[in-house]
Write a protein that binds this DNA or RNA. Sequence first.
RNA 1: GGCUGCGUAGCAAAAUGGUUAUGCAGUGGCCUGCAAAGCCAUCUACGGCGGUUCGAUUCCGCCCGCAGCCUCCA
Length: 464
Amino acid sequence: MLKIYNTLTRKKEIFKPKIEGVVGMYVCGMTVYDYCHIGHARVMVVFDTVGRYIRYSGYVLNYVRNITDIDDKIIQRANENGEGYSDLTQRFIDAMHEDERALSVLPPDIEPKATESIADIIAMISKLIINGLAYVGANGDVFYSVTKFKNYGQLSGKNLDDLQSGERVDIDHAKQNPMDFVLWKMAKANEPAWQSPWGLGRPGWHIECSAMSTCCLGNHFDIHGGGMDLQFPHHENEIAQSEGATGEKFVNIWMHNGFVRVNEEKMSKSLGNFFTVREVLKQYKPEIIRFFILSSHYRSPLNYSDEQLNDASAALTRLYTSLRDCHVENIIIDAEYKSRFEDAMDDDFNTPVALSVLFDLARELNKAKEVDTERTNCLSNTLIKLAALLGLLQDDPEKFLKSSVINDADFTDDLVEQQIQARLEAKQAKNWQLADEIRNVLKEQGVILEDAPNGLTSWRREKI
RNA sequence: GGCUGCGUAGCAAAAUGGUUAUGCAGUGGCCUGCAAAGCCAUCUACGGCGGUUCGAUUCCGCCCGCAGCCUCCA
């Protein structure tokens, strides 16, 4: 029985989709004016894992993740680069998809773009004006009137009085209330713009998600996710917009993932302390990044450091090592490990516990290897099948263990094999000194040798 | 200031009102020509002070420390 923590109620709730057997999930995706950083990777990996498990649990999932491809920063960046905004966004959309594939993130079912949803956005704004929740301000922009929406603040636990006393934004005199937010923004000269009943302009940031989510999944759907920082004001405003426009409840469960931190501080573009996915991929194999992300619970903070990535690397190596020389053809899955794994995932996607089940499995597998072929097949199959739900261990073990992110053209696999052969000959001649020297030379190149009892030598690459 | 949340062994990270988390690292052993890998054993814990309880790391209160949101941010 799947339980999910709902930010709206601040409790774990038994998951029950609106329509039996069918789940609609919307996740706020990227604003595409730069490369994805590890914080973005966390959103992608976390909700990919959520999606995989929901499907595994027997639901038909409709997973929507949007792309914000028009906003102030995009316009600004495109101007700085002297390129068209759509050229800019297309480049970073392509880059995002590359990063996503590297991290074994399955593509969402629908990936709507703001610029392709303008008609829906305009329709929703018109509805809000008709319903008396929105108005045209003194500067021509259309604003949402937050005081007209009775439950404003329900998601973030804020109330309007507190917000106003702590107000840090410059008063915009076009607004009736400082907390009002923009739905439609009038275009300045040479800005990308669309025709609307209020003139040439572009959508505000929050309205696109309301329009795209209800458009793809209906007025009322099951799960809406995103980073913690979107809780307020973005998701709060989405509720106000969608419920204000449709008159229906918007979302049943709100899921928010915690931040990636660097030195106990949030990783963010504005702080400039971010590492892009492609930078990190130069140092670590993609699956290590995925493992690292899943090694803490999705709502907890995740501290980014080399030490943590190296730990993830060692841990993943242990799992792959246990799968070495296992022939997975058996379709039987061990019921007890399966059930322990499911219990962990059912408990609000507790991936650290789910991973610990995999390690217990690996230990038993290591023990079974030399003694019980049938059990070995069963356990290795179980390990691979359960790990697949986390998007892990789907590579060939030898391939994973022998691979390296550092492309050393001089130190090929063939050369390693040759050296191993030379060492075997030295060993046969009981020339231990030469054998050890060859092993040390290889070690300096990051190649670790392991002599098996049957006289064969296996090897793997380790980060130097 | 308002509102969230967190504080677990050397590091990372979970669960739990009384019994082994797990991974890395350490120590001892088995294995090995020696290693590595693996296996077995083992040492390090629950921020502080009170309260509830037969019993609290786990529930409650206060304090201290940290992070986040309140402004664009995943």
